[in-house]
Design a protein around this nucleic acid. Structure first.
Lengths: 256, 256
DNA sequence: CGGCAAGTTGAACCGCCTCAATGACGGTGG
DNA sequence: CCACCGTCATTGAGGCGGTTCAACTTGCCG
């Protein structure tokens, strides 16, 4: 039942995961080989499949090789908040294995291919291939940072800034695995999914995308994001690459 | 310059951190002794002090022994989003040591007492006292889960539900270290701080607190939270203790 | 061709923000 | 000791951003 999706998100060669890690630490032959074993066997899931249920016991992790997925929580009122969107090269449920937190569901957004990673093989890798272990920890750390950034996004930015910010970061993540260029990328997220990610209704998200289009900043259509004006977009997003030193003037925040 | 605060947040006996961990894993004498060394020496900081700056290099962690603190990020427009509020027994910057993510600032909300923990003593503890290590990982895992819950809160709940939810969870955390009873706790957070936590203006938060008061659910006044109607409050918060099995009907979420 | 999901647009409503003013408290200096 | 601050809490009025409800279109698949 796998639909014909995945065209845009297919890896051209090799593993997205390896590609991502090796941007952080250059990997030698043996390490690459070890990674390759980790990623076998690969199994497919149809879009919409839930890989991990909320409140599931026993934690599983998957290396996402092809396609997109997301982790989320459901609310009593039927709403859904997507915690984080995963692209090829990301690990699903890494946090839940390292730290035993789970309590999030994970589902395939498109048809996907994954390799399951057990806790045991993961710890073995940590001990046997410490540089690989470091690289994987780095990946977990990046995940954590992204969740925090997402939280700030939801708490303090307008719908427009929030959307711009998210789409910029998504592009950067995709560049890491060679799935995006400077000026765009394939993006199979529907407006419903994107809305649930950004804490917006699909209707309003649609209007926001229209604004971005009208202001010649970014076009998102037919599963493709095209960045028209990178600088303008960053400025609309309040995007702060982290380099600038905006130290608070030391005021604020007290109970004197 | 330490003001006279800290009355309400003072530990009566022993360490809040030890108390919290031992609720998870009963600790023996030796482990308690080891913890005690970890927590020495203790140093005070005045309310408002920044312990860790955003973008600081080199990661430091602190066991919070007395008083309250918070971690946050500042935005380009001068706004602030508080990521997470720490109470006695919590570790500040744990994530940044385990996974090397930092990029958050940490500041004292009241006058506080902390014990600094270096990466080295932490890893030593991991190897030398593996049960303690497990307990600490558990704490980190709980932190992570709280950040995720907070994210969901910001993304998908109304101001009222969000506030109720946060104050309920805060109460549970404080109970763990003996700083709250079933029906209330001392809470030194100002409405500005609480607003920055919940992604609301202080003005609107004030109105929300008034609603909670008018509906006889909860009173927050003079640094004290009193829970009037626990069941009603949970219901207003859409609080889901996690026991109930609200499995999605398998619909939603696709790109068919 | 019919059906279903995704995208698009309009109109009306309301939750939360903004701006503004005021009261209560505690700390500080004249 | 009291007048004067600064911070926090509280309340009102008005405006905007985002939701809700409700079409209608487009494209894909059977």
């Amino acid at each position: 039942m796998l639909s014909s999706m995945a065209r845009g998100t297919m890896m051209l060669d090799g593993s997205a995961f390896a590609r991502k890690l090796s941007q952080f630490i250059p990997l030698n032959e043996r390490e690459l080989a070890k990674l390759a074993t980790l990623e076998r066997p690969s199994q497919p899931f149809a879009s919409g499949t839930e890989l991990v249920y909320e409140h599931e016991i026993g934690h599983r992790a998957f290396i996402l090789q092809q396609g997109w997925a997301c982790s989320y929580k459901l609310l009593a009122d039927g709403g859904r908040q997507i915690i984080d969107v995963a692209v090829p090269g990301d690990v699903l449920g890494l946090r839940s294995i390292l730290l035993r937190t789970s309590d999030q569901a994970v589902a395939a957004v498109t048809d996907i291919a994954v390799a399951e990673v057990t806790e045991r093989t993961l710890t073995q890798t940590f001990y046997g291939e410490s540089r690989l272990g470091t690289a994987i920890l780095w990946a977990a750390s990046r995940d954590q940072a992204m969740v925090v950034e997402h939280l700030v996004n939801l708490g303090r930015r307008s719908a427009l800034a929030r959307t711009a910010h998210f789409l910029i970061e998504l592009g950067l993540r995709l560049q890491l695995v060679g799935l995006a260029s400077e000026d765009g990328y394939a993006c199979p997220l529907t407006q419903y999914v994107l809305g649930d990610t950004l804490g917006l209704t699909a209707v309003h998200l649609n209007r926001v995308l229209r604004q971005l289009r009208d202001r010649r900043l970014l076009v998102m259509q037919k599963g493709h994001v095209r960045i028209l004006d990178s600088a303008g977009l960053r400025s609309a997003a309040g995007y702060n690459s982290g380099y600038l030193d905006e130290r608070p003037t030391e005021a604020s925040l007290t109970t004197p």
